[in-house]
C-alpha cells in the first residue's frame, strides 16, 4: 500500500469507482454491477432489502450435514478446540452451533422430515428486545446479529430466543478468521454470512454447500424484491414459519414441514 498524501480515502473511492466501472463494462450481467456498487457505498445496508431464506424440507436429506460443515468452516467454528477432558455431551452442549440438523417425526402420521435450524432472523426479534446494552440488534437489511464489542455476556438473549439459535463462547479461542472474530464470554449466532453479503455476494455458505451436494434445499435472497427467486418461490408455494404463533415474522421459512 503506498499512500503519500493525507487523504487516501478520496483516492481510494475514486479508484473503486473506476474499478467498478471497468468491471461493469466487461461484465455481461448488469445485476453484478449493481451489487458491487452497493457494496462500496457509504450508506451501508439499506432497508430496501430484507435477506431471508426458504428451506425446502423435502429436499433436505437425512444424514447430510454439508450445510453445517460449510457454516463451521466459513465462520471459523471448526477452529475452536475442544477443552481437554470434556465429555461429548458437554462439548455438544457448550460449543457454538450456528446451524444444526434436526430430524422430526409427526406423532400422528409418522411422517419424517429433516431440516436445518438456525437463527430465523425475525422481524421482531425477542433477543433484540431483551438485550440490556443493545448489543443484539437487527441490521437495516433484516439480519439479526450481535455486536460483540458491547455484548456483556449476560445470556438474556439466549433465554429469550424461541429457536435456541444462539451460542455462548464458553472458552478461550486461540485462532479466528479475519472475517469471523470470536472471543470468550460473548454470544453469537448465524448472521446469514453478512460478511459475504457486504462484499456483494448473494449466497450463504450453507446454501453453496447444499447446492454443491445437489440437494438445493436452501434458497437465499431478498424477500422484498418481488423479482428475486426466493420471493417468487414464496409466492408460488405454501411455506410456514416456525413458531408462527409468536408472530415474529421470521426471515427464514420452511416448506413441506
Amino acid at each position: 500500500m503506498s499512500i503519500n498524501n493525507d487523504q487516501p480515502d478520496l483516492q481510494r473511492r475514486d479508484f473503486i469507482g473506476k474499478t467498478v466501472l471497468a468491471a461493469g463494462a466487461a461484465t455481461v450481467a448488469p445485476g453484478v454491477l449493481l451489487t458491487v456498487a452497493n457494496a462500496g457505498s457509504d450508506e451501508g445496508v439499506s432497508s430496501a432489502v430484507r435477506w431471508g431464506m426458504l428451506i425446502d424440507t423435502n429436499k433436505c436429506v437425512d444424514g447430510c450435514s454439508a450445510c453445517v460443515e460449510a457454516c463451521d468452516k466459513e465462520n471459523g467454528i471448526d477452529l475452536i478446540e475442544r477443552p481437554q477432558g470434556q465429555s461429548d455431551e458437554m462439548w455438544n452442549a457448550q460449543r457454538p452451533q450456528w446451524i444444526r440438523k434436526v430430524k422430526l417425526r409427526d406423532t400422528q402420521t409418522g411422517e419424517i422430515s429433516n431440516l436445518p435450524m438456525m437463527c430465523q432472523h425475525c422481524e421482531h426479534p425477542p433477543c433484540v428486545d431483551v438485550c440490556p446494552t443493545g448489543a443484539s440488534f437487527k441490521r437495516a437489511d433484516g439480519i439479526v446479529m450481535v455486536d460483540r464489542h458491547i455484548c456483556i455476556g449476560c445470556r438474556y438473549c439466549m433465554m429469550a430466543c424461541p429457536y435456541k439459535a444462539r451460542s455462548f463462547i464458553h472458552q478461550d479461542i486461540a485462532e479466528q478468521l479475519t472475517s469471523a472474530p470470536r472471543g470468550k464470554g460473548c454470544v453469537e449466532s448465524c448472521h446469514l454470512c453478512a460478511n459475504r453479503i457486504d462484499a456483494g455476494r448473494e449466497t450463504t455458505a450453507c446454501q453453496d454447500a447444499c447446492n454443491q451436494e445437489g440437494h438445493k434445499a436452501i434458497l437465499f435472497g431478498d424477500l422484498k424484491n418481488p423479482d428475486s427467486e426466493i420471493a417468487r418461490a414464496l409466492k408460488a408455494q405454501h411455506s410456514r414459519q416456525i413458531r408462527a404463533d409468536l408472530e415474529l415474522n421470521t426471515g427464514v421459512r420452511y416448506t413441506n414441514v
Binding site: V68, A93, K101, V102, L104, D106, P162, K164, V257
Partner: peptide, 22 residues
C-alpha cells in the same frame, strides 16, 4: 425443552432439541 415443532417429535438433533437439558 422448547416446543419448536408442535405435533412432531425430534428424532435427531445435535443441539438437544426436544430433550430435557441436563
Amino acid at each position: 425443552p422448547m416446543n419448536l415443532f408442535p405435533g412432531k417429535e425430534v428424532l435427531e438433533s445435535s443441539f438437544f432439541d426436544g430433550v430435557v437439558a441436563g
